[in-house]
C-alpha cells in the first residue's frame, strides 16, 4: 500500500530499468540501452489514458509503452469498438467463461464480412484465410509468463457480473489492464502487467494475496 501513491513515472522508470538490466544481461547490446533510455525520456510525454475507470475499481498505477506488434492482419480495434460500438465480449467470447479471452473464430469475422467492406484489402486478406480454411496466426500481445495463472473469467465475474456493472460498458473494466483499446488498431500493451502491477491492484481491490493463487 505504501506504493500506491507512487507516480506512474517512477514506476514506469523502475520497470524500464529492470527491463534494461534484464536485456543487458541477456544480450548486452547497447542498442537496448539506447532504446530503454529513449523510452524513459519519452515517458513524461505520454498522454494519460482518458478511458473512464469504473468507480468500483481502484486502478493500480503503472504504465507501459508497448511495442507495435505487426499482426498478419492489421485489425482495427478502433473501428470496431469506437465506431461500431461492438462490445469486447462479442468477439472475445471466452473471457467470461475461461482463463483466456480467446480470439474469435474466423467464421465470426466472416459472419459480417461476407457482406461488409469486402473491397478493403484487410478484409480480402481475411477472406483469403477463410477460403483456405485457415485461421490467421496472431501474435500474442498481452502475455503473462507461463508460471502465472491468470484467469479472465474470475476478473470479469468480480468486476462485471458480481458488481452489477453494465455489460455494455465492459471495455472500461477491460481497460484497467488492456488500456484504451478503442484508440488502437491492433492491440498494444499499455500496462506493465508485471507482478507489481497485479499486486497493487490486488491490494487495492481486495484480491487474493496468496502466492499460489496466481503462480503455478
Amino acid at each position: 500500500m505504501q506504493f500506491a501513491n507512487r507516480t506512474s513515472l517512477n514506476n514506469a522508470a523502475a520497470v524500464s530499468i529492470r527491463r534494461l538490466q534484464a536485456k543487458l544481461v541477456q544480450c548486452g547490446k547497447p542498442f537496448y540501452l539506447l532504446m530503454a533510455l529513449a523510452v524513459m525520456a519519452l515517458l513524461p510525454l505520454t498522454a494519460m489514458a482518458e478511458l473512464p475507470v469504473p468507480s468500483h475499481i481502484t486502478p493500480p498505477p503503472g504504465e507501459h509503452e508497448g511495442e507495435h506488434v505487426p499482426q498478419p492482419i492489421e485489425f482495427p480495434h478502433d473501428r470496431h469498438v469506437k465506431d461500431m460500438k461492438i462490445n469486447c465480449m462479442y468477439c472475445h467470447t471466452y473471457a467470461r467463461r475461461s482463463k483466456v479471452a480467446g480470439i474469435p473464430p474466423t467464421s465470426k469475422c466472416m459472419g459480417c464480412h461476407k457482406v461488409i467492406a469486402t473491397d478493403r484489402p484487410r478484409i480480402q486478406k481475411l477472406t483469403e484465410y477463410w477460403e483456405k480454411g485457415e485461421s490467421p496466426r496472431w501474435k500474442k500481445v498481452h502475455d503473462v509468463p507461463d508460471y502465472v495463472h491468470f484467469t479472465h473469467e474470475k476478473h470479469i465475474r468480480k468486476f462485471v457480473f458480481d458488481a452489477d456493472f453494465p455489460v455494455e460498458d465492459v471495455q472500461q473494466v477491460c481497460g484497467v489492464c488492456h488500456g484504451e483499446v478503442r484508440e488502437m488498431t491492433v492491440a498494444e500493451k499499455k500496462k506493465p502487467l508485471n507482478m507489481g502491477f497485479c499486486r497493487r491492484c490486488h491490494e487495492a481491490n481486495g484480491g487474493p494475496g496468496d502466492c499460489w493463487k496466481c503462480h503455478k
Binding site: R19, G66, E67, V69, P70, G102, I103, P104, P105, T106, S135, P136, R137, W138, K139, K140, V141, H142, D143, V144, P145, D146, V148, E188, K189, P192, L193, N194
Partner: peptide, 11 residues
C-alpha cells in the same frame, strides 16, 4: 515473459 509478440495464438 513480458515481451509482447513472442507467442502465437490461433482461433
Amino acid at each position: 515473459t513480458l515481451e509482447e509478440g513472442k507467442e502465437e495464438v490461433v482461433s
